[in-house]
């Protein structure tokens, strides 16, 4: 989680660039964007580790419920997945608006991405509460610990993403965002899409393949 917080700082470093200057770099790409990609490369190993832990403990359910079609609420999780995919679309539209310098649509799409993200997070809170009521506590079994750790890590990533989005949105409202800083939006977007593809993976491997 802490890394994600730090990359937040990265993403916003774009604020600091002198307006309008695009600095000469060896790759032709800005340091901030390159740093974000480097960071995302590292995140693959993080989620890989959590997913492997989950796969290792998938059937180790002790006395508690296990991963099965009747336990997971597939219709609801599918709706959640749609919400997150939709937020990816609004995110990319926000970036596109930022590149055109279209402040109005930038604000609209940023806010709607954050709102859709919040719907996803509320869905996760809902789902966790239902699971706990159904008897799957954090300490119930290695499966439950691994499941909550993996989806919880993802949820924390989403939440951090929403905070980044809202901060960007408020900065835009306050006029702190220079029109030339579309890159900040792009970098927040990279993070957001990454969180989305992690969910694409989790949804398939944990829910649908159960």
């Amino acid at each position: 989680m802490a890394e994600a917080v730090l990359d937040h700082a990265d993403a916003h470093d774009a604020h600091d660039a002198h307006e309008g200057h695009v600095h000469k770099t060896n790759t032709g790409m800005s340091n901030n964007k390159l740093a974000m990609w480097v960071f995302l490369g590292s995140e693959c190993l993080l989620f890989g580790g959590l997913i492997s832990t989950y796969l290792l403990y998938r059937h180790n359910i002790q006395d508690g419920p296990g991963p099965s079609e009747e336990f997971f609420d597939i219709p609801f999780t599918s709706a959640s997945s749609f919400v997150l995919l939709m937020s990816s679309l609004t995110m990319v539209l926000a970036h596109s608006a930022a590149e055109r310098g279209d402040q109005k649509r930038l604000k609209i799409w940023l806010l709607s991405t954050a709102l859709l993200g919040s719907v996803f997070v509320s869905g996760q809170i809902y789902e966790f509460t239902v699971f706990v009521r159904e008897g799957l506590g954090w300490s119930t079994s290695p499966f439950s610990s691994a499941f909550y750790a993996l989806t919880g890590f993802h949820g924390v990533h989403v939440t951090i993403g929403i905070i980044m989005l809202l901060s960007t949105f408020i900065s835009t409202l306050r006029g702190r965002m220079h029109p030339g800083n579309a890159e900040t939006v792009e970098i927040v977007g990279l993070y957001w899409h990454f969180v989305d593809i992690v969910w694409v993976f989790i949804f398939t491997v944990i829910y649908l393949a159960a």
Binding site: T53, L56, N60, W138, S139, S141, P142, S145, A149
Partner: peptide, 16 residues
């Protein structure tokens, strides 16, 4: 917080 990743009593795998 009492999770079970390395808790062999709950059948966890110490090789993880």
């Amino acid at each position: 917080w009492g999770a079970n990743f390395f808790n062999v009593e709950m059948g966890a795998d110490p090789l993880l």
